[in-house]
Computed example of a mutant assay.
Amino acid sequence: MKTKLLYHTNSFTYECTATVVAVEGDEIALDATVFYPGGGGQMADRGVITWNGGHYQANVIAMNKRNDIVWHTIDCPPPTIGTEVVGTIDWDFRYQMMRTHTALHILCGTIWQEFGVQVTGGQMYPDRARMDFAMENLDRERIAYIEKKVNEAVKADYPIRVYSLPREKAFAIPDLVRTKINLLPPEIEEVRIVEIVGLDLQADGGTHVRHTREVGGIKITKTENKGRINKRLEIVLKDPEDL
């Protein structure tokens, strides 16, 4: 049994019809889903699942992915196996996560190109995001320079491509994994690639926008010293109309 991950092929898909294939307590598994279960610092999607022509509706209150199955935790008695349901995500929240995730790739790609340092951690929130880098120097001059370069990348409106490659071919690409620790499980045979054409290319399982200008302006709002060679940058996004 395996859940078809519709968000992997099109991050802009916000609704789908699916069939319940398993039930465990208040969790249901579907044969296909638009709900991103969370991971890689990106928050899980929110939304609702309806069935019986919309007569029944459940809020999706938690999610997790176990092996190849995405489980949706709902807040009411679950439908039975074989029930056809409609899953609808909170689009505004998803799109904010897409913009934020792409913004972190712009930040990561820019810092890699400029300074050649790796990522040591990251996390997205509804209103901000942070990323940690194996960097010694992060003075005001460098912070201002980084902010200038990431916003130049946003305005350049680079296209973003998402595709998969066989594991062996993917890992032949230099610096595909930018984290200090390779988090890709060894059993993964196909590696999903997110490429900001002209700036960045990484193995990634999250959702993204189609071009960098959709992200809007990127403002570095906070920095922290997390160790001698570990610095944290926190960012917020501005509306694309404000560019």
Rank of each mutant, 00 (worst) to 15 (best):
V86K: 15
P159H: 09
A134R: 10
T80K: 10
N52R: 14
I106D: 10
P126Q: 01
D239R: 10
A144F: 08
A172S: 12
E24I: 05
V162A: 12
K148P: 01
Q57Y: 09
T33G: 04
T110E: 07
I173G: 11
L6I: 13
D26T: 09
V194Y: 15
P126V: 08
F171S: 05
V70H: 03
F12Y: 15
E152V: 03
R161T: 08
E84Y: 04
L104P: 02
R66D: 00
R94H: 14
Y7N: 06
G121S: 04
V194K: 02
D75R: 09
P77K: 11
T9I: 15
M98Q: 10
G54W: 06
I229E: 15
H101G: 10
K155S: 13
M98V: 09
P174M: 12
G40Y: 06
W71L: 11
E190F: 00
E189T: 11
I143V: 15
I81T: 14
D92M: 13
G54D: 10
A153V: 04
G39M: 03
G53C: 11
F133I: 01
H55V: 13
N59H: 15
A129W: 05
E114I: 01
V86C: 14
I106G: 02
V20Q: 05
E114N: 02
N230Q: 13
A144W: 11
G87D: 13
L176Y: 10
I181D: 08
I74L: 14
W71H: 12
Q96R: 13
D175L: 06
Q57V: 15
R128A: 12
N137S: 07
A62M: 01
G82M: 09
L243N: 15
H72C: 06
K180H: 01
P240A: 05
H55G: 02
I235K: 09
V194T: 11
G53W: 08
F35C: 04
D200K: 02
Q96A: 09
P77R: 10
P78G: 09
A129F: 01
A103F: 07
I181P: 00
Q96D: 10
R142N: 01
I235A: 04
I89D: 02
N67F: 05
S11W: 06
T73W: 06
Y125V: 06
A170Q: 05
F115V: 10
L176V: 07
F93K: 11
G39F: 04
M124T: 05
V215W: 02
T83Y: 08
V70Y: 07
N230T: 02
A144D: 15
Y7M: 00
H72N: 14
M63H: 06
F35I: 05
